[in-house]
Structures are given as structure tokens and as C-alpha cells.
């Protein structure tokens, strides 16, 4: 039906048109694929670098402690002390209630004297 409405001529499509359409689409795909590849790999490289950095820092700390030998009992005592400390830790509150004073500067616009409806005045 649409070919009666619109003058469609399928023979106008040449191989050059198809080649152009396909190759353009493929290039768009490839360029975005390249972008996704770079940003897929980048975080992994960064994590690896970070891990290496941490390892180096750990090695340095180990070499500094190389002379000191900590026995199992001492480690257990330190662990217990830390555990007790963190378990008994509570949020401390100051228990001071503060009421913020709201200062209202005088203005005739908010004055009660100038209210339009002032029943008290009538009652007097």
C-alpha cells in the first residue's frame, strides 16, 4: 500500500549505497567499542596500580617492624582490649538543649498595632 502512496523505487539502491551504510555503521560501532574497551580496562589498571602501591607500603611497614617480635599472647591481649573498647563505645551527647533565639526587628509592616482587624480596640 505504501508503494502506492510513496514513489518507492528499490532498484535505485546500489551496492555503493549499501556499502556506505554498512561501513559507516561499522565504524560508528568500532569507535564506540574502542571507547568502551578503554574504560573497561582503565579501572582494572588503576586497581592493579593501587594494589601494588599498598603492597609496597605494606612491605615498608613490615621492614620497619622486622626487628620487633610480637608474641601470640600479646596480639590476643591487644585484640581483646580493642574489642572491649569498641563494644563499650557509645555516642556521647552533650545533654545541652539549645533554643535558638529568633530576633525580630521592628517594622511597621509586622506590628500588631497596625493590624487591620484589631478586635481588642473595638472591645474597649
Amino acid at each position: 500500500m505504501i508503494d502506492k502512496l510513496l514513489p518507492i523505487d528499490f532498484s535505485a539502491i546500489g551496492t555503493n549505497h549499501l556499502a556506505l551504510a554498512v561501513s559507516c555503521y561499522v565504524v560508528v560501532f568500532l569507535s564506540l567499542f574502542l571507547l568502551s574497551l578503554v574504560f573497561g580496562v582503565l579501572p582494572k589498571l588503576r586497581v592493579r596500580k593501587l594494589r601494588k602501591k599498598m603492597q609496597t607500603a605494606g612491605d615498608e611497614a613490615n621492614s620497619a617492624l622486622a626487628g620487633t617480635m610480637v608474641s601470640g599472647e600479646v596480639s590476643a591481649a591487644i585484640g581483646l582490649a580493642l574489642s572491649m573498647y569498641f563494644e563499650e563505645l557509645h555516642d556521647q551527647e552533650s545533654a545541652i538543649l539549645t533554643m535558638r533565639k529568633v530576633g525580630k526587628s521592628y517594622s511597621p509592616w509586622n506590628s500588631k498595632i497596625y493590624n487591620v482587624i484589631n478586635f481588642n480596640r473595638f472591645q474597649r
Binding site: 555503521y25 564506540l32 567499542f33 568502551s36 574497551l37 573497561g40
Partner: peptide
């Protein structure tokens, strides 16, 4: 980043 490819696929209409 794999979602970037959806943006490429949706250029099909062009």
C-alpha cells in the same frame, strides 16, 4: 562501559 555499545546500536535508524 559495555552500555556504550547500545548507543552505537541505536544508530541503526540512520
Amino acid at each position: 562501559p559495555k552500555l556504550i555499545l547500545l548507543g552505537a546500536a541505536a544508530q541503526l535508524g540512520i
